[in-house]
């Protein structure tokens, strides 16, 4: 049998083993297809040019957004306590990493103590500029680390007393930050395998955010 010294470069996607390079290409292709498909209905920035989306369309868009927010790449830093989480099983971050006063760790154990401005694939540490935890007001989990239901997350995201005073346009901007984008380019784990990414593409996520904000950010009950 083959053994552990073989670095598992590449990961399973649709039952196939593909290399990260191929995944990158695949993503680009998917994005291109998505933009071609949507070409008629959107302007250059991907915003709908037609009538304002309905509440039902807005809610559907929210569900797409929620599918991203509840993904480990995002929710691991929207915790309800003093610690970030790691990996797809969302365990508490190892090595006693703590939130710290500004969500960036503490003096000698900062997020930046390991996380750099880009992914360190040779050592398996993810990174992007401004790596930090969301404030506790933006927690999307309960005290037992269970992901909050869609309605509760939506209320948090739309509550400007909790979300840092962001309106719809600002939320779209937040979703365009490098930190949020990172979820779709999360790099390799230290065993050489690729981290999982949210269930929809980044383009779909941004389009959904726009549709949802244009529908006046409806939240499910």
């Amino acid at each position: 049998m083959m053994c552990s010294y073989e670095r598992k470069i590449g990961f399973a996607l649709g039952g196939q083993i593909v290399s990260p390079v191929k995944v990158g290409l695949l993503t680009i292709i998917l994005i291109s297809v998505a933009s071609l498909v949507g070409a008629g209905a959107r302007n250059q920035e991907g915003t709908r040019t037609g009538p304002r989306p309905s509440r039902a369309e807005g809610l559907a868009a929210w569900q797409q957004i929620y599918s991203v927010m509840s993904h480990p790449r995002c929710i691991n830093c929207h915790t309800a306590d003093g610690y970030p989480q790691q990996t797809d099983d969302r365990h508490r971050h190892l090595f006693n990493v703590v939130r710290g006063p500004e969500g960036k760790g503490v003096a000698a154990l900062q997020c930046a103590t390991c996380h750099q401005s880009s992914n360190a694939d040779s050592t398996g540490v993810p990174g992007v500029p401004d790596w930090h935890l969301a404030p506790l007001s933006m927690r999307w989990q309960d005290a037992n680390d269970k992901v909050l239901p869609s309605s509760a997350v939506c209320r948090t995201v739309t509550d400007r007393t909790k979300n840092g005073g962001l309106d719809g346009a600002a939320l779209v901007k937040h979703h365009q930050t490098e930190l949020v984008k990172w979820a779709w380019q999360p790099g390799l784990r230290n065993d050489g395998t690729a981290r999982s990414i949210p269930p929809i593409s980044y383009e779909q996520f941004i389009a959904a955010t726009r549709n949802w904000t244009q529908a006046r950010m409806p939240c499910p009950q």
Partner: peptide
């Protein structure tokens, strides 16, 4: 190099 070595073992 060790990470990339493909070894087969008689376990």
């Amino acid at each position: 190099a060790r990470d990339r070595l493909r070894a087969e073992w008689d376990t």
